[in-house]
């Protein structure tokens, strides 16, 4: 579905916003790009949607050379960019209907599909309200409805839930889950639980490069321990022998058992610090891989790639 080899992007010929990215995505999967701000996720998405021309590399999408023949690829994709907003004086129905006509749907098909998508996303009751009078969650879901109604083979969603409350985010998750299977979805997000909940594969990026990739379980297995103790308020590490990462003025200690995590927490409390114990999540993998990548001197043993 997507095959990218050595993709790179530089704007000034010196600094590379994207460096030597290889990516292979199979049909019907949800692939999430994770990474901090400036990691290169949006640049990669803009190249994959054919909006931005790469400085280096090859790109095949849906069997077509997307760099030479982008016009053959474009109608088969749908893209909701980061910070996209709906036009404020139209209604959700008008937005989705018009988008479908622009995608080549007949007027009657556009009406039917717009209704279907709005009903699926719980927007049918507000179909005639103008966007200005709707909450941020409804606006964002209206944009997702465009992608849902499009029947595109490949859908790109760049941070679709940023700024939404917990309820609206779950509404968008449901919509993305519905897309799964019919379409391949490339998602970028800062929300780890979103990536864990939706992804078949996660690609972790930092500084324009791919740091690691795999299923959620594969990535979780790349770092030691089952539990993490977040320790702060102490100056000296008290966890010699454990893997840890120093993140600003706190330590993330990776341990195998809940007993170990309790021991560290108790010791930390005794020394006047504070500790938070929890199970390991994808967030810890991201922190470990990215911080370990750049701040090796402040990290314990790194057992990942």
């Amino acid at each position: 579905m997507i095959k990218a080899e050595g993709l790179g992007k530089t704007y000034d010929g010196v600094k590379w916003a994207l460096r030597n990215v290889d990516l292979s995505v199979n049909r019907g999967k949800v692939v999430t790009l994770l990474g901090p701000n400036g990691a290169g996720k949006t640049t990669l998405v803009r190249i994959l949607t054919t909006e931005l021309e790469p400085s280096a590399g090859k790109l095949t999408i849906l069997g077509e050379d997307a760099l030479r023949n982008p016009e053959r690829v474009r109608p088969r994709l749908a893209s909701i960019p980061q910070e996209a907003k709906p036009i404020y004086f139209v209604t959700p129905y008008e937005l989705v209907f018009s988008y479908l006509v622009f995608r080549g749907f007949s007027i009657s098909d556009a009406r039917v599909e717009a209704r279907r998508a709005l009903e699926e996303l719980g927007l049918w009751d507000v179909r005639d309200k103008i966007m200005n009078n709707l909450s941020g969650g409804y606006k964002r879901r209206a944009l997702v409805a465009m992608a849902l109604a499009s029947n595109a083979e490949l859908v790109f969603m760049d941070e679709p839930t940023t700024g939404l409350d917990v309820f609206s985010r779950r509404g968008v998750w449901d919509a993305l889950a519905r897309l799964k299977g019919n379409s391949t979805v490339i998602l970028t997000t800062h929300y780890i639980e979103e990536a864990e909940f939706l992804s078949d594969e996660v690609v972790i990026m930092n500084n324009g490069a791919v740091v690691s990739r795999g299923t959620v379980n594969e990535l979780l297995s790349k770092i030691n321990g089952e539990y993490v103790v977040e320790v702060y308020g102490i100056n000296k590490p008290i966890f010699e022998g454990y893997s840890y990462v120093k993140l600003n003025n706190r330590y993330l200690v990776y341990v195998d058992t809940s007993e170990d995590s309790s021991l560290i927490a108790q010791e930390c409390t005794r020394m006047g610090g504070k500790a938070l114990m929890r199970r390991k999540t994808l967030e810890d993998v991201v922190i470990r891989l990215i911080e370990g990548w750049y701040n090796d001197e402040s990290s314990g043993d790194l057992d990942s790639d």
Binding site: P75, A78, K85
Partner: peptide
């Protein structure tokens, strides 16, 4: 501001 043009790139328009 709206990134509307970016969305329209992936249409038949």
């Amino acid at each position: 501001e709206l990134k509307f043009q970016s969305m329209l790139i992936n249409t038949r328009l």
